[in-house]
């Protein structure tokens, strides 16, 4: 039994110590916006925020979580889908199949949280999640557009 703070709510979860956070979020808590892609922290489909840092939840064990850690999943990024990254993604029709986009959006939101006006090189360094449909050109444009929204806000 562990207590996790996910999207601001305290959840009691039942999982063996070696269970990845990803599977606790998906199967115990029931939030399926966070995706399983590779299981080895390569693709980033499982990206969530832990204390504001983007982390690949397939490779974070539940036993590594500390009391007070704040976990935010795609479902908790904004109440109404109004985060600048979500708005930019909608404006540019970034997603194709959409499966990796929860992770891409979480990675982009974490980047803008630390660096509100990222350069292309900053985006290259931070946005390392795999998109098999190949939406990278629009992801880059989306990060820049979201940065503009942040600047004007």
């Amino acid at each position: 039994m562990a207590k996790l703070n996910i999207n601001g709510k305290i959840r009691d979860v039942q999982a063996e110590a070696g269970t990845p956070l990803l599977w606790v979020i998906r199967e115990q808590v029931g939030l399926t916006g966070t995706k399983y892609g590779c299981g080895v922290a390569q693709c980033g489909a499982c990206s969530v925020h832990i204390n504001g840092e983007v982390r690949r939840s397939c490779s974070v064990l539940i036993s590594d979580m500390k009391p007070g850690d704040r976990i935010v999943t795609i479902e908790g990024l904004s109440a109404t889908g109004s985060h600048p990254v979500q708005r930019a993604w909608a404006a540019l029709d970034v997603p194709q199949c959409g499966y990796c986009q929860s992770g891409q959006i979480m990675a982009a939101a974490a980047l803008l949280g630390k660096n509100p006006q990222p350069s292309d090189a900053d985006i290259d360094a931070a946005m390392t999640n795999i998109c098999r449909c190949g939406t990278y050109q629009r992801i880059r444009a989306g990060v820049h557009m979201a940065a503009e929204m942040v600047k004007k806000a």
Binding site: L31, G33, T73, S78, A90, D93, G98, Y99, S102, I105
Partner: peptide, 18 residues
């Protein structure tokens, strides 16, 4: 605009795996 974007942005879309 695509008709199927909205729930790809908030984790709401249910894929078969979900």
């Amino acid at each position: 605009k695509r008709l199927d974007t909205a729930d790809k942005l908030n984790g709401g879309k249910v894929y078969a795996i979900d």
